[in-house]
């Protein structure tokens, strides 16, 4: 006698490809933990250590952005925070923009803004010149040839 194993079992349609919602969720959790460290580390070094907030000037930023450690730190901060924020905004758009067109426009605008900001930010971090030619020697970092 043949019996059906489980009658009336609806066919489970296995989605193909990457499960973006799942990875999006995992990304939010993982980047969130990292961002807590990165952001508070950033705030601590910029606003607390040494002279605190008074130390921030062109030379301070120039000094930081010529140190490979801070370059990596800032790159991570930039990429993780922007994608984290954009993904959160995407969720909000999905929540409130029920019209297909509005939803599409907002999400494309979001993607565009995120990509532009990431590209520009990364460009600044890696092409930043801490010792621009003809700069006032009192304003640039101490390791610059023109600094006094």
């Amino acid at each position: 006698m043949t019996t059906i194993q489980a009658p009336r079992t609806p066919a489970v349609t296995r989605r193909r490809g990457v499960n973006w919602e799942k990875w999006g969720w995992i990304y939010m959790r993982a980047s969130g933990v990292l961002l807590v460290v990165l952001i508070f580390g950033h705030l601590f070094v910029n606003l607390w250590v040494g002279d605190g907030i008074k130390a921030i000037d062109f030379a301070f930023v120039g000094g930081k952005l010529s140190d490979p450690f801070w370059k990596v730190w800032d790159t991570l901060l930039l990429w993780l925070a922007l994608i984290h924020g954009a993904n959160g905004m995407r969720t909000l758009v999905n929540d409130y923009a029920t019209k297909r067109l509005t939803n599409g426009i907002l999400k494309w605008a979001l993607l565009l803004a995120t990509v532009i900001l990431i590209v520009l930010g990364t460009l600044v971090i890696y092409t930043f010149d801490p010792c621009p030619a003809g700069a006032d020697p009192s304003l640039v970092a101490s390791f610059c040839p023109v600094a006094n």
């Binding site: 489970v12 296995r14 989605r15 499960n19 919602e21 799942k22 999006g24 969720w25 969720t91």
Partner: peptide
């Protein structure tokens, strides 16, 4: 695994905030 598969969907548990 069947139920986890059903909930591992765009409209499944990942929508929970």
């Amino acid at each position: 695994s069947v139920r986890l598969d059903i909930l591992n969907d765009k409209e499944g548990v990942w929508r929970c905030r």
